[in-house]
């Protein structure tokens, strides 16, 4: 068998970058058409009105109901991020540190709950703590009327309760890797140096887990800030959230105003980008302990 290697002088050999670029082209075209272009157009048209270039769309977002929508979204996202964050972290610790190995079934369930949001979740919550939900009726039967106490599933408190359904298991899954990598030796070292339970938490556990916890909560915040489906199915236009406002500005008949929707979406993107940058920074810090 002869291996006659001809000195190839083909086009592909002379210009290797051409084949590299050609291979990457389909992905690049897809990303440009369905991601870059839409976002670019959204940003550009947020600075345009019928009269041409202007900041009027942005002025529109900082007053009245739109400003309130921003405040409400911020508030709800912060509350669910902290609530889900604390519950999720503690549950991750409970799972990883108490048992010899975390139950796979439980983790699967958690990932189902973290992923199963949106319309079905909204209806499940209505069937549970809605005006004639089963928990509401159960409580009524023992003499406690949720709805006479001012609670409603269609309000902000109801939304927080609903978001916690996916935020709590989401945080559990986000925290589990760092909690699992928390070494037993650190705990033993603290103990042999005479640390009390409180000191162990204050000087060892919390400082090590804090970066992942803040990062996880930043992601939870973004998750809730950008969510639309659950709130939309729960209360239609009754909830004053940015994503709901945007929906009605684009799809609605009476409020139709895409310029304003674009401006709101750009502002939202800025907030989300900040949250994700916080996640990135804290995630890098957390990795120091994950060797």
């Amino acid at each position: 068998m002869s291996l006659a290697i001809k000195p190839t002088r083909s086009f592909w050999v002379r210009y290797p970058w051409v084949s590299t670029a050609l291979g990457l082209a389909p992905m690049a075209i897809g990303l440009i058409a369905f991601l870059v272009l839409p976002i670019l157009l959204m940003v550009v048209s947020s600075f345009q009105t019928d009269q041409g270039w202007s900041l009027n769309n942005y002025f529109g977002t900082v007053r009245g109901e739109y400003l309130r929508a921003f405040a409400t979204t911020l508030q709800i996202s912060l509350v669910t991020a902290v609530l889900g964050g604390v519950l999720g972290t503690l549950t991750a610790i409970a799972l990883a540190w108490g048992t010899s190995s975390p139950n796979n079934g439980l983790l699967t369930l958690a990932s189902v709950a973290a992923n199963w949001g949106g319309v079905p979740l909204a209806f499940a919550m209505i069937a549970t703590v809605g005006n004639s939900g089963w928990v509401t009726e159960l409580l009524r039967a023992i003499g406690f009327d949720l709805y006479k106490q001012g609670f409603t599933i269609y309000g902000n408190l109801g939304l927080i309760l609903t978001y916690t359904y996916f935020q709590w298991p989401l945080m559990l899954l986000l925290m589990l890797p760092s909690v699992q990598r928390f070494r037993q030796q650190w705990c033993e070292a603290a103990e042999s140096l005479g640390a009390t339970n409180g000191q162990f938490w204050r000087w060892v556990a919390i400082p090590i887990l804090m970066p992942s916890m803040i990062g996880g909560m930043a992601l939870l915040f973004a998750n809730s800030f950008g969510a639309q489906a659950t709130a939309f199915a729960l209360a239609g236009g009754a909830l004053n959230l940015i994503t709901i406002k945007i929906t009605f500005l684009v799809k609605g008949q009476t409020d139709f105003n895409p310029g304003l929707a674009n401006a709101l979406a750009v502002e939202m993107t800025v907030v989300l980008a900040i949250a994700v940058i916080i996640y990135q920074i804290t995630n890098q810090r957390a990795r120091r302990w994950m060797r």
Binding site: F34, I246, V250, P258, A261
Partner: peptide, 18 residues
């Protein structure tokens, strides 16, 4: 991390305009 920065609402209004 993209889905967190560009949620469905943002991508949705961008896409309908394009």
């Amino acid at each position: 991390l993209l889905p967190f920065v560009v949620p469905a609402v943002t991508l949705g209004i961008g896409l309908i305009q394009v």
